[in-house]
Design a protein around this nucleic acid. Sequence first.
RNA 1: GCUCCGGUAGUGUAGUCCGGCCAAGCAUAUCGGCCUUUCGAGCCGACGACCCGGGUCCAAAUCCCGGCCGGAGCACCA
Length: 466
Amino acid sequence: MRMAPSASGPLHIGHARMAILNDEYFRRYGGKLVLRIEDTNPTNNEPEAYQMIQDDLHWLDVNFTDLVIQSKRFELYYSEMKNLIEMRKAYVATSPTEEFKSRKQQGMPIKERDETPEENLERWDKMVSGDYAKGEAYAVVKTDLTHPNPAIRDFIAFRIVDTPHPLEGDRYKAYPMMNFSVAVDDHYNGLTHVIRGKDHTANTEKQKYIFGYRNWKLPFYLHYGKVSIEHTILKTSLIKKGIRSGEFTGWDDPKLGTLVALKKRGFSPLAIRKYYVESGIGSVDTTFSWEIFYSFNRKIIDNVSPRHFFVNQPVSLKFEFEGKLKASIPLYPQTGNSATQEKREYLVGKGSISITSQDYQKFKGELVRLKDLGYFKIGDENIEYIGQEILEDVQKWNPGRPLGKVPIIHWLSGNDVPFKVIKPDGTSEEGLLEKDALRFTGKVNQFERYGYVNVLDEKEGYFTHP
RNA sequence: GCUCCGGUAGUGUAGUCCGGCCAAGCAUAUCGGCCUUUCGAGCCGACGACCCGGGUCCAAAUCCCGGCCGGAGCACCA
């Protein structure tokens, strides 16, 4: 099995499918899992990508057995190409590419195609040694000029590049095209199975020609369908531009679909794995369902997320009360029994109590239950303690609300710090956060009645999902 | 336009190869109920699909033909 991302940037949620699918087969059937970084287009290469890709895979718990970097293998590609030219299966052309394309369209060869290996070899040597300038020459692998699908007819295997390579500098001038290097590497990396997106189906046909000429054993190919991931920015070039312009804070900006961004938002890599394993390898195109993904993640993180109160857009209400009320609120209500549970404990007395403006608007003048504190009546500017139990008919207090249903809302009183939650759509919400949550920075907390938030530091956090 | 590939509930899938056990399973979403001092979790229930038309067959989501719709590729990117 192999994973072959390009060295243009970190992996995103779309790449994760390729990685997970290959890894799942690897886990099930063994063999080897090759990470091959395809960096044969220097204009798109990002020097930091080599490391970022490996970090992303480790985070996903995808443990590759071999690392192959294509720019280290030019000598192999060159010797293979020379081989093909000698076999009359490839040629080197200096004719304009417009002519190459149009004749191909008509099923006609350009003149170099029929020239002798000696003539082509001579041009090939000049190409490798850098005697041609960018655009002056290119090497082509023969397929079948009469192939019914024009996309499969003779394809370019090498071109001249004068942009320096991030790893190799100006050492090479002749750069292999993806279809050539992939075929050669798939063979020499000893791959028996290739799983990749269906955008490669035509490429597979081209690559098979090289396998045929060399009599190599063909791997088993599987192409999965396209996943469209809505409401998310994935395109590396766009992200780079956005980072430069300051629109994004970095590769891990919460608006992005990169794995580092999802990590920072507090997603579990297990949720990503589960999602793609359940999606399978069908060739149908699908739309990525954030809802299902969120649900998987929620189930994974729910038990380990401490609960805290976050009052966004707080309204402060005066609390005139002689004495102290004790609040004892479990940190992990899902786990353990109530006696041994870890709790947050507060004493609330005269002063003020904050609730969200949303709750204030909705329940003004009514009876509510402040979670784990007691029954209260919300006034215009103050809040009044009623008691721990309400024996009378609730409807006496809240006419119009259903019987026995007192709204339970969250609150803060003196035990809070200002906090900002940054959402994936780029907006943010400010409010008060229970101070105890700061003990859990770097972790996902569940802000009760609000959602899951990865608390990054004492000032802000990224919204994970509801 | 050319060449391939594919169409199961709102979404994601199981079943299609080798027709019957599929009056179509699961998950998610939505709605309702129970439980609960979170609108979370859990439990129960409801909702909701085989693209259309022919054909073969005792029997078709499954096989065949036609149509419709969708996607991929057609680079000196990967």
